[in-house]
Design a protein around this nucleic acid. Structure first.
Length: 196
DNA sequence: CTAAGGATGGACT
DNA sequence: GTCCATCCTTAGT
């Protein structure tokens, strides 16, 4: 499935799957699709293969973890056939097991729904960092992906978050009405340092 | 409720 | 040197 379907379809179907890592399990409630070389200006792979995005060009089912803004990490599921670069960003989830550990890792979360209602928060709760980059999700690695045990409800789609280009592509998917879905924020334009 | 600004470091031009 | 697939706190409707 991960390698045989369009990446946006995979993103949709990953909703409801469970991701387990370091004693915490999360049910995915929000995902985003990113395409490959030349086809998606918002994708890390758009400009070609680099040391950071190399995992995206490999076989499907690997975890792609990268650091952003110097202090957070984002987790992706690599999709597409070997040689094609595509991935699904895991944006949010509901903690369904290991809530105690999750709270320790996210002391600022005021509600259970806020434990993993954003991509950086999701990796914090699961204890994932660059060490988990390029590891298998099928078992034996730091993080494991398992199918849903119940059908998911209605799914919504919309533009991706924090993306400067391709605002018209509705490649963000979430479970309709779920309280753990991150609130949409438009990309905040960079400010230049005040001239003096 | 929304908007703005800072923290912070690696990848890329 | 510039740009982020972010989060949190503070200030303003």
């Amino acid at each position: 499935m991960l390698d045989s379907e369009p990446v946006d379809e995979v993103a949709r179907r990953l909703l409801g799957w469970r991701l387990t890592a370091n004693g915490v399990t999360v049910r995915l409630t929000e995902t985003e699709a990113y395409g490959g070389l030349g086809e998606d200006p918002a994708s890390h792979a758009h400009r070609g293969l680099t040391s950071r995005n190399a995992v995206m060009f490999g076989p499907a089912g690997q975890l792609y973890v990268y650091q952003i803004y110097g202090m957070y990490f984002c987790a992706n599921v690599v999709c597409g056939e070997n040689g094609t670069a595509a991935a699904v960003l895991l944006r949010a989830g509901e903690v369904v097991d290991g809530a105690g550990l999750a709270r320790q890792r996210r002391p600022t979360a005021r509600t259970a729904a806020a434990l993993a209602d954003g991509p950086g928060k999701l990796t914090l709760v699961l204890g994932l960092d660059r060490a988990a980059d390029n590891t298998p999700l099928s078992g034996g690695g730091p993080a494991t992906l398992t199918p849903p045990d119940a059908p998911v409800g209605p799914v919504s789609a919309g533009p991706r978050v924090g993306v400067t280009s391709a605002h018209d592509v509705p490649w963000r998917f979430w479970i309709t009405g779920d309280p753990t879905v991150s609130t949409y924020r438009r990309h905040t334009p960079r400010r230049r340092p005040a001239a003096h």
